[in-house]
Structures are given as structure tokens and as C-alpha cells.
Design a protein around this nucleic acid. Structure first.
Lengths: 102, 102
DNA sequence: ATTTCATTTCGTAATTTTGCGAATCATTAA
DNA sequence: TTAATGATTCGCAAAATTACGAAATGAAAT
């Protein structure tokens, strides 16, 4: 019986990111932020995404928890932006996994 | 009230892949297959990954369902390999999302 | 101080995921 | 044919995810 491994930091970090991106709502939001708009308002999202306000809030919370986005309060709205620093880390991890060039 | 969107094929496809990769066990397996070894045996995995046989089987099933791997029976073992065709598609989708070069 | 507006949190329900051991299946060896 | 071996499926339980509406929050306007 061989030794059981411990997941490397990379594996755990990738799983954390993929988990955050494992739902169409969240992929949609990140795709939007990673593209042209690097920020958007929760109010705009609720108009276009077919999901209730409170549900959207939970999805945003998960993306925040995973470190992929951050919210700046800009009364009376909340502006959500891509967390560029962590996004860069994600790019490195995925470039490695997928053997892509940065 | 603006129009609700429909998720694009890309968004749905990315969500399917990220969901398949949203667990450390499955990231570990894919990382292994995408690296040096492009194939491995279920029996070897069960020795190194801290999870029971039946549970591992379920994880492999999910990766298969998502199209990321395929299993060739090679009695008395089953050899799992990366599904290169779909992996290439995944690379394109992620390269786009992460703005990486192929 | 009260109202208003955008958003989040709470409470809850339905569904899915994860994990295990026991039972089953498929193939080879005896 | 019968055992042995490797792997999957079944049955189940615990935990997590997803979704919603109602209630609560916080900041600005009246």
C-alpha cells in the first residue's frame, strides 16, 4: 500500500477557482469583467441575468470569497470589479495546467 | 426592465468544465494526465489519493461525463487517458477567458 | 426623523454532491 | 466451473449548493 498524497497548494487553489466558476451565472459575470468591462453594477446584472436579486447576491459573494472579484460601494450602488491581482494568479495556474503561454 | 440573457454556449461549456474540475481529487487527476503521464490506472490513483475506491470511481465518472477523460479497458486494469480532443477545446475556451495565448 | 433605494442577510425548501461499504459485474486464472 | 481480481454500481447518510421571498441594512434625500 503506497503513501497517500496531500494535495499541493496549486491543486487546492485551482479547485477553489474552478468551484467558484462552476455555475453559469458566475462564469457569465467573470467573463464580462475579464473582457471589456472590468467593472459592473449589481443592478445591471440583475436585469440581464435570469435569477433573483438575493440569489445574485449569493453568487457575487462566492466570487468574492474566492478572491476573483471585489466590491466597491459607490452609493447608492455597489460596483463590482475583477480582482486583478488574484486574476493574474489564476492565469498563471491555468496557463500551467493547460500548458498555455501567458 | 431589460431583457434577460440566455447563457452562451461558451459560458455553459466553461461552467461544465469548471464544475468537473471543482474538486481537488479531480484537479489532481487532470493535472497528472495533462502533465507527463497522459494516462494512468485507476488502481494507481486509489493508492495515492486519500479516498475510497467507489468514491474515486464516481470522480472518474464525472470527468468522463464532462468529456475530459476516457477509459480504455486493458484487462485486468482500466487505463484512463486525457481526452485530447476535448482538452484542446477546453484550452481554447480558457485561453479566451483568461486572455492567454494558445 | 422618515422615506427611499439598492443590496444583503435570513429562513427555508429542493436538489446535488460527496463519501462509504456492500453487492455486483467482467475478465482472467486455476 | 469456480475462484480471484479490479472496478463499478447501489443504497444510504451527511453536507453543500441553489433558489426564492421576506426582512434587515446602510446611505442618501426629503
Amino acid at each position: 500500500m503506497a503513501e497517500k498524497i496531500r494535495y499541493s497548494e496549486d491543486v487546492l487553489e485551482i479547485a477553489k477557482i474552478t468551484k467558484a466558476l462552476s455555475h453559469p451565472v458566475r462564469v457569465y459575470i467573470i467573463k464580462k469583467l475579464a473582457g471589456m468591462h472590468s467593472c459592473c453594477y449589481s443592478g445591471d446584472l440583475v436585469d440581464e441575468i435570469p435569477v433573483g436579486r438575493s440569489t445574485l447576491s449569493q453568487h457575487l459573494k462566492e466570487l468574492k470569497y474566492a478572491g476573483l472579484i471585489q466590491g466597491e460601494t459607490e452609493p447608492p450602488f455597489i460596483k463590482y470589479c475583477l480582482n486583478r491581482e488574484n486574476w493574474e494568479k489564476a492565469r498563471v495556474l491555468f496557463a500551467d495546467l493547460l500548458e498555455l503561454k501567458k
